[in-house]
Each structure stands twice: as C-alpha cells, then as structure tokens.
Computed example of a mutant assay.
Amino acid sequence: MKTKTKLTVRYAETDQMGIVHHSNYPVWFEAGRTDFIRQTGVSYSDIEARGVLMPLYEIACRFKSPARYEDEVTVVTSLKELSRVRIILSYEVVRDSDGALLATGETLHAFTDKGLRPLNAERAAPDVYKLLKAALEVPSGFKKS
C-alpha cells in the first residue's frame, strides 16, 4: 500500500539559497505518515486512545534534487516493515511538475505505552496491528480501499 500526500512549498520553508531547507523534510514525512495511518482505517489519535504510542527513534533522509518555493510536491509513503514492537515507513518526495525525485527517507518507530515502555502492539491493540499488517500485504502500486 502506498499513499500520496500533496503539499505546496511555502516561502517560509525555503532558505537563503531559495531551496527548501532540510529541516522541512521530517515535517513532510510526518504529514505522509499521518495520511498513511489514516488510510489504513484508524487515526493516530485512535491509536493513542488505546494506550499505544509510536515514538520516532530514527530518521534518515537522502536529498536528490532541490525543491523550491511554490513547487507542488507529493510525499509517497509506504510501510516497509512491521513487527510487534516497531514499524518502519519509507518516503519518496516527488515534484509534481516533472516527476523529479527530490528526496527519499525512512522513519523508525517503536510501539510503547504512555510511559514510553516498549509493548507488543499485536497484544495491546490487535485491531490496529491487523490493519497495519494488511497495509503491508497490499501489493505494490495498489491502494487499499
């Protein structure tokens, strides 16, 4: 399963060189991740209401080409790996006008309780885990409906 989140580069996101500052990509990844989770059939707030948190513990971003003010971009998000204790999501940021790949990245998240102690997501929120697992099993190029 892959989701697409559309964004338009705001002036405040650019630096003195007129390109998107690197600090914005994690924010864009978060927008993509939030959309991805929602499209599995549950929201972040629903997951947290069940007592399950997903703190970020690692992030990677590889820059390929610069984005500029008013570029329309799409963050393509997919689930790379899921276990009972962690989830890894992958991202591609693409410029809509020419299809140029601007950046790729990954975020790694643990499943924890509200005290940030690790927990087994399959036991703590079996319905959520089942939805995420189903998203992992959807063939590439297909969007779960």
Results as ranks from 00 to 15, higher is better:
Gly141Ala: 05
Leu132Gln: 00
Arg117Ala: 12
Glu137Met: 13
Leu79Tyr: 08
Gly51Arg: 10
Glu122Met: 09
Phe36Met: 02
Gln39Leu: 15
Ser65Met: 15
Leu116Cys: 13
Glu70Pro: 04
Tyr91Ile: 12
Lys80Val: 09
Arg38Trp: 05
Lys133Gln: 15
Phe111Ser: 06
Ala49Cys: 02
Lys114Phe: 08
Phe111Val: 04
Gly105Thr: 07
Leu136Ser: 09
Glu81Tyr: 09
Glu70Trp: 03
Glu48Trp: 07
Lys130Glu: 15
Ile88Ala: 08
Val138Met: 07
Val73Ile: 15
Leu56Phe: 05
Leu116His: 13
Tyr91Met: 13
Leu119Arg: 11
Leu101Arg: 14
Val93Phe: 07
Cys61Ala: 15
Lys114Gly: 11
Ile87Glu: 06
Ile47Gln: 00
Asn120Pro: 02
Glu58Asp: 12
Ala103Lys: 09
Ser97Lys: 15
Arg84Leu: 01
Gly105Cys: 09
Arg38Leu: 08
Ala100Phe: 10
Lys80Arg: 11
Ala67Glu: 10
Val42Asp: 02
Tyr69Trp: 13
Thr77Gly: 06
Lys114Asp: 04
Ala100Thr: 14
Arg95Leu: 12
Tyr69Asp: 03
Glu122Val: 01
Arg123Glu: 10
Ala121Glu: 00
Gly41Phe: 05
Lys80Cys: 02
Ser43Arg: 04
Leu56Cys: 02
Arg84Cys: 03
Met54Pro: 00
Tyr57Asn: 07
Arg117Cys: 07
Gly99Thr: 11
Cys61Gln: 08
Arg95Met: 13
Asp113Pro: 04
Gly115Pro: 02
Glu72Thr: 15
Gly105Arg: 08
Thr34Leu: 14
Arg68Ser: 12
Ala135Glu: 01
Leu56Ile: 12
Leu53Val: 04
Glu92Trp: 01
Ser65Gly: 12
Arg84Gly: 01
Ile87Ser: 11
Asp71Phe: 04
Asp127Lys: 13
Val52Gly: 02
Asp35Ser: 10
Thr40His: 10
Asp98Cys: 14
Glu58Thr: 01
Ala49Ile: 02
Glu122Ile: 01
Glu106Gln: 13
Gly115Ile: 05
Ile88Arg: 12
Ala121Val: 00
Glu72Leu: 10
Gly105Trp: 08
